[in-house]
Design a protein around this nucleic acid. Structure first.
Lengths: 172, 172
DNA sequence: GATATAAAGTTATAATATAACAATTATTAC
DNA sequence: GTAATAATTGTTATATTATAACTTTATATC
């Protein structure tokens, strides 16, 4: 079941399926899912929050790997190429792909209070974008669709004024 | 007439109307449209290509202003607050707003060959985004909708392989 | 004209990302 | 199984983008 800002969900199974998908996709693509790549994917999946590359470095160091920036950027680049990770450019941050292997437009809803983000696949959105591009003869190569606002929990919470600090739901 | 990747258009009138709009909007908002703010807006409007902040610094220096980064970032921040400039986060670059004062979703079509970008307002897109957000109880604050690909000129051009270098239409 | 406010100048540095080359590990060909 | 090749990772250095903090100047308000 997809994550949609619900306060409780089995995040262990999110991680587990992300890793299983990654194994499969790398195998299909004849790509090596090395230890550092797996570690970076695990770290990215520790939450549904987009994380900055530099935030991952301490854990990488702790795991005994070289923790210079190229280490994490290379792994993230690989994971993006395999469609396992997305870059949220408005945040300079990275998030695990919720629909690996799928085609079509992915749109991110990003809560600026609790920082959680949800990846949404919408055929209606995809066709709207397809249409407006086609009208101009524009050929799409990639999309960055990022919507920033308040998730339903933060929206109704009384801590709105203390923005960007306290998540209003348990799962980080 | 709005710019939509057409090879020829009266870019002087793009600039002129952008500046006239800016005057009006700043006046309406009781904000000061200072020389440096005007200069930065003019520089941004020299083309329909998103430009990096640092790219503007030489011209700012030539015009006799302080050309340290804060100068241009402050002006760009002001212009964004007034809705006169947009940041294209996937490029770390800035572009003049084609529809200042308008409400609703703006989406950018960005050609990765000639670097030109077009801002599109689409009610269909806006409603698709409104719907998918509403389904999740998500309240939108801002949107970053960036579509990267090839404009119709670059798409059909034979110089595709020399990507990101030569624009295939005259207007920079 | 004095005071307060906003804007711009200036210096320094933070945050994000990549280049370039060396060392290591895995794969392939024999 | 070993040599040659290719891919990955380690390492150092640096590029690019952006902001913090404080000073000076200009504008607006009283």
């Amino acid at each position: 079941m997809a994550f949609t800002f619900q306060s409780k969900h089995d995040h262990g199974s999110c991680i587990k399926s992300a890793l299983a998908n990654a194994e499969q996709i790398c195998a299909d693509h004849n790509q090596r899912f090395t230890k550092i790549r797996r570690l970076v994917l695990e770290l990215i999946w520790q939450s549904h929050k987009p994380l900055g590359a530099y935030e991952l470095l301490p854990a990488i160091k702790q795991a005994g790997f070289n923790s210079a920036p190229p280490t994490v950027y290379r792994a993230l680049e690989f994971l993006q190429e395999q469609g396992l990770v997305h870059r949220i450019s408005s945040l300079n941050a990275f998030i695990g792909c919720s629909h690996p292997g799928h085609q079509g437009s992915s749109c991110f809803l990003i809560c600026d209070q609790c920082q959680l983000a949800v990846e949404v696949e919408s055929p209606v959105l995809a066709s709207a974008i397809g249409d407006l591009s086609a009208e101009m003869g524009f050929v799409i190569e990639r999309e960055h669709l990022e919507i920033v606002g308040k998730c339903r929990h933060c929206c109704s919470s009384k801590t709105k004024e203390v923005a960007n600090k306290s998540p209003n739901i348990p799962c980080g």
